[in-house]
């Protein structure tokens, strides 16, 4: 059976776990543990393996929602996770020291997957730090010669996360209509 997946990635504390929780039909399976090494200053607990949620669709179809571990020492898992993925949701924490470095890192790390599918970018914590602005992120993406959706996102708000995922779907295929 084909596994339909959407992958949520981004640095530690960007809101991947929360975003999956806000649209999942099941209580997400969390694999958080006490933070160690570089993450301990940002979160008391962090995802050391992966998060998992699911969206149940008609006719028994399921969309599995996987969150990658934020810590780079687990990046060996990313290739396994993205296999068969529909697309990528990249969440960036605007309050981090250098969010553009994060943007470039993740766009580069998932380059092949993004080329095969698509990516939508959500910027969290903009209420804590207003800059860089969404416009600045687009300017940064222009340097990479790509035009991905970038939205201000509150990961706790299911509507924000839903719009982000919808933009991913339309980026893959603008022809989809839904039933309205």
């Amino acid at each position: 059976m084909i596994q339909h997946k959407i992958i949520f990635t981004g640095p530690v504390g960007a809101g991947k776990t929360t975003a999956i929780h806000s649209i999942s039909d099941i209580k997400p399976v969390k694999t958080d543990a006490s933070a160690s090494d570089m993450t301990k200053d940002r979160k008391a607990e962090t995802t050391v393996a992966m998060d998992y949620g699911v969206m149940n669709l008609p006719d028994g179809d399921k969309i599995h929602l996987y969150g990658t571990p934020g810590q780079e020492r687990f990046d060996f898992m990313w290739d396994i996770l993205i296999e068969g993925g529909i697309g990528l949701i990249l969440l960036l924490d605007n309050s981090r020291k250098n969010p553009f470095q994060d943007l470039n890192f993740f766009i580069n790390a998932f380059d092949d997957f993004i080329k095969q599918t698509s990516v939508a970018i959500g910027v969290t914590q903009m209420d804590l730090k207003a800059t860089p602005t969404i416009e600045h992120y687009h300017q940064e993406l222009n340097k990479l010669n790509v035009k991905h959706p970038v939205f201000a996102v509150d990961a706790r708000n299911s509507r924000d996360v839903s719009i982000l995922v919808q933009s991913l779907l339309f980026s893959i295929d603008p022809g989809i209509e839904g039933d309205d």
């Binding site: 339909h4 649209i23 969206m55 149940n56 669709l57 008609p58 006719d59 179809d61 969309i63 529909i86 299911s158 509507r159 839903s162 995922v165 919808q166 779907l169 893959i172 295929d173 603008p174 022809g175 989809i176 209509e177 839904g178 039933d179 309205d180």
Partner: peptide
């Protein structure tokens, strides 16, 4: 006309329905 995907359509409906439920 662009060919649409059944799975993506279903997922889109699901997301929209979720939004309506939330509001």
């Amino acid at each position: 006309k662009i060919k649409s995907s059944g799975l993506l359509n279903k997922l889109l409906n699901k997301l929209r329905a979720k939004n309506h439920d939330d509001s």
